Simulated assay, not measured.
Amino acid sequence: MLCIISGNMRVITDEGSWITPPGQACWVPSEANHLVTFTQSSEFRTISIRSDLLTDLPKKCCVIKLSPLLRELILTAIKIGWDYRLESYEARLMQLLIEKIPLEKETPFFIPEGRDSRLKKVTSAMHENVRIDYTLKHWGNVAGASPRTLARLFELEMGMSFSTWRQQLCLLHAIEMLLKGQSITNTAFTLGYSSAGNFTSMFTQAMSKSPTAYLKEWNINKEIL
């Protein structure tokens, strides 16, 4: 499990990408082939768990929000290290950490990927320059496919509509931009929103807090961690 203290991380697998901002952790199963990239200078902590203790833990990658208790358990576990007796207080603390992981709330920081070559051409281009005002017609010209074909591929391979996937990608890019110090207004216009207010409404609906509140919480967590 990779826990982000500052900066921002992406975990990429064949299924898609998980963005992990500060105050979150990305759970990666031991058998999952994955690539970790950092979109800015970052600080993180890694927790490794023995394979025989994974029974009740997630079977797939996921991003979870670190509750205050789990955060403290992780920091304490790192200080303890590997040198402790099996019947000790330290061992009980490690067991509590393991039991707490599957109880944490998953966060909506996953963007799936498809396999069709036309779809991959579109999503690759969108990762480089996503805008909420670029339609399927625009991306159809990039992929050499009709809007109807692309719409069908998004539903079939992503399990969601094009507009839902596009908004999710905009959200993930917005988080990365805000964490890098971009203003809310600049982030909104870069992503193609007609106003900062429209962008803020999208962000608040998805994250249950405004961009300003999100950044304030991140700064508090950064100080604690």
Rank of each mutant, 00 (worst) to 15 (best):
S17E: 12
I19C: 04
G23F: 11
W27H: 14
L35Q: 14
L35V: 12
T39E: 12
S42G: 02
E43D: 09
I49Q: 05
R50K: 14
L54H: 03
V63D: 03
S67W: 00
R71P: 00
E72W: 03
L73F: 08
L73E: 05
L75C: 02
K79A: 13
I80M: 05
G81E: 01
G81H: 08
E87L: 00
S88A: 05
S88D: 05
R92E: 14
M94N: 07
P108D: 07
F110V: 09
F110D: 01
E113C: 02
G114W: 10
R115V: 09
K121L: 12
S124M: 03
S124R: 12
M126H: 05
M126Y: 01
M126A: 14
E128W: 06
I132N: 04
T135C: 02
L136Y: 01
L136D: 10
L136W: 04
P147L: 07
R148W: 00
F154A: 05
E155T: 15
G159N: 10
M160I: 02
S161A: 11
F162D: 04
W165Q: 01
Q167T: 15
Q167W: 00
I175D: 06
L178P: 07
Q182F: 12
I184T: 05
S195H: 08
S195G: 04
G197Y: 13
F199D: 07
M202F: 06
T204M: 03
T204H: 05
Q205F: 01
P211D: 08
P211T: 06
P211M: 12
T212R: 15
L215I: 13
K216A: 13
W218M: 15
